[in-house]
């Protein structure tokens, strides 16, 4: 079990992480969620002992992380990087060897992963020849080939096409089923919603929400409706019983005021929009974030903590 308690990290004047506490358990997928610059990467780097926290503790199974424990952890950094001139297979073997894995064992594991992602033919090719998506898969393999008991993925889905995202999601679920603690960070709420058991929602280095996803949704669950339609839904936000709206051209999520019922909305839109789907739902994480923080996660926090120091 990974236990983070009251960690703080300040860069010059910016408090990147401000007293975060959470735990991630074996066999679960834990989501560290928040907009860009919220302090997710800094937190992961502190767990990885790449940078030291100003205060607070990070423990694995009750012990502070020592250098030898790094072999038990797999890490996919936000900024991907492999030695460009080296061959794919050699690079991965080198990374596995640094984690203490014996060569034959490492080869078998790497081959199995390459096979799984359908890039076994690229074993003898140079890293510089890989496309971006393939490079990310190779990097992912670099994080998991040594069979770690904890994996930390920093923004694992960024820059991947939907097919590759699904492949990665499936791989993460499989790791979890094998009893691995999977911790990943994302600013895309949809990803978190798909696979996380528990989440920590952070903003400006502080906790916004923490707990099992289902519980979080229930706690903040109010009347919400998701609508797919053809037509102009601009009028919806002005309806008297509507609290807030997340709007896209052909899809909206509407949160209703307390005491209102979803069929009020149904009657209001009937005839004015061609409704294709109408579903009463618990609000999305996105929605919850917007309500608690007062702005969309895509806006970032503007503090730029991650700019001067890549952290």
């Amino acid at each position: 079990m990974l236990k983070v308690e009251q960690v703080v990290k300040t860069y010059e004047t910016v408090r990147a992480v401000d007293g975060l506490s959470f735990e991630a358990r074996p066999g679960e997928i834990f989501g560290l969620i928040g907009p860009n610059g919220a302090g997710k990467s800094t937190t992961i780097r502190m767990i990885m002992n790449i940078i030291a926290p100003d205060s607070g503790t990070i423990r694995f199974d009750g012990e502070r992380l020592s250098e030898s424990d790094k072999a038990r952890i797999g890490y996919l950094p936000e900024e991907r990087g492999l030695y460009k001139k080296a061959k794919v297979g050699e690079s991965l073997e080198y990374l596995a060897a640094l984690k203490g894995m014996k060569l034959p064992e490492a080869r078998a594991s790497i081959d199995a992963w390459l096979e799984r992602f359908g890039i076994a033919d690229w074993r003898e090719r140079k890293v510089s020849e890989l496309s971006k998506g393939m490079g990310q898969k190779v990097q992912f393999i670099g994080a998991v080939a040594h069979k770690p008991s904890i994996v930390l993925f920093d923004e694992p889905f960024s820059g991947l096409d939907p097919v590759a995202q699904d492949e990665l999601l499936a791989a993460m679920v499989e790791l979890k089923e094998d009893g691995v603690t999977v911790l990943f960070s994302t600013h895309v709420m949809d990803h978190a919603e798909k696979i996380c058991e528990r989440i920590l929602l952070v903003d400006r280095g502080r906790e916004v929400l923490y707990g099992p996803l289902a519980e979080v949704k229930e706690r903040h669950g109010r009347n919400a409706v998701q609508l797919e339609f053809d037509g102009d839904a601009a009028f919806v936000k002005d309806l008297p019983f509507v609290e807030t709206v997340v709007a896209y051209p052909r899809w909206i999520e509407v949160e209703l005021k307390e005491g209102s019922e979803s069929d009020q909305l149904f009657r209001a839109v009937a005839g004015r929009l061609r409704v294709r789907r109408f579903e009463a739902v618990a609000p999305s994480l996105h929605k919850i974030f917007v309500r608690l923080v007062g702005r969309s996660p895509e806006e970032g926090n503007g503090a730029g903590a991650g700019e001067a120091l890549r952290a």
């Binding site: 952890i73 950094p77 990097q139 670099g142």
Partner: peptide, 8 residues
């Protein structure tokens, strides 16, 4: 590559 290296 530095971060990957520093994770080991």
């Amino acid at each position: 590559t530095v971060e990957v290296m520093l994770s080991s």
